[in-house]
Nucleic acid binder design. Structure first.
Lengths: 138, 138
DNA sequence: GTAGATGCAAAGTATTTGCGACAAG
DNA sequence: CTTGTCGCAAATACTTTGCATCTAC
């Protein structure tokens, strides 16, 4: 868990302050995708003296260091998630806001193929599905 | 061209003011994906008295009326595009900012399949590819 | 004529930044 | 020690809104 984040910080030459350790811990224990406000709330319960500016600075730093990813889902604030080996995309329930993570190799490959077709090498992508729950399941 | 927008306004009961006509015209003549600032600049050349508040209000109204779509590409401002029958996704050149529109039926179908697998009906989606131009083309 | 649209400036959000005090390596 | 970080409050960027005036239907 936090081992990974600490290791990543050391390998990137990122100083390990108490604040960063707390933010890293909270993020690695969060299975949802908190926005900065929410993260700040959770962090404040551990150390109420941490300022929101530090939270903003830290998520940005962690993003650049490959520790977190930023999501900008429709019309909301930026939300963050710990970045692990396995890449995945998101299916968002438009009614409840629930977020489901999924992986689809076939789609990934097709994306590369599309980029290739236009003479591009894919460096990143974003796929978000927005759906409503079905009434009955056959 | 603008016929479509005028028709859509009438059918939706949207009042056709001079400002809206100008904004509609500018959008339908734009083949890129302008943000509000840029749209405001273009509109101002036709009628300098239009305020940016009206531009914001109008793009929002047009979006709700199915005339424009809003894109929130990585870390930038919201950008708008005229909504036509054919749906397409975007491939963004991370170096130049150039945007290429593409359609891939196969990916669309797979998306529906993924949503289905989790018990959802797809109501919307967002797919953005970020790439760099290849040096040599075989 | 009347409901809704506009322009202006002021108010919101979300995020970033300057600066003096402070802490990690 | 020295460089980078923190907390604070002020600043910024984008977008929305209250209000008096004006206009399409």
């Amino acid at each position: 868990m936090s081992e990974t984040i600490v290791a990543k910080c050391l390998s990137k030459g990122v100083k390990l302050t108490d604040q960063r350790k707390i933010i890293a811990k909270v993020m690695s224990e969060s299975s949802d995708h908190p926005d900065v406000d929410e993260l700040y709330n959770r962090v404040s319960k551990i150390d109420p003296k941490i300022s929101i500016a530090t939270v903003y600075r830290t998520v940005k730093l962690f993003e650049e260091s490959g520790i977190l990813t930023k999501h900008e889902f429709k019309g909301g604030k930026a939300r963050y998630e710990e970045l692990n080996e396995g890449h995945h995309d998101h299916l968002i329930d438009v009614k409840s806001g629930e977020i489901i993570e999924f992986v689809d190799e076939e789609i990934e490959n097709l994306q590369k193929k599309v980029a290739d077709k236009y003479g591009y090498t894919l460096v990143d992508h974003k796929l978000e599905l927005y759906g409503v729950k079905k009434k009955s399941q056959k």
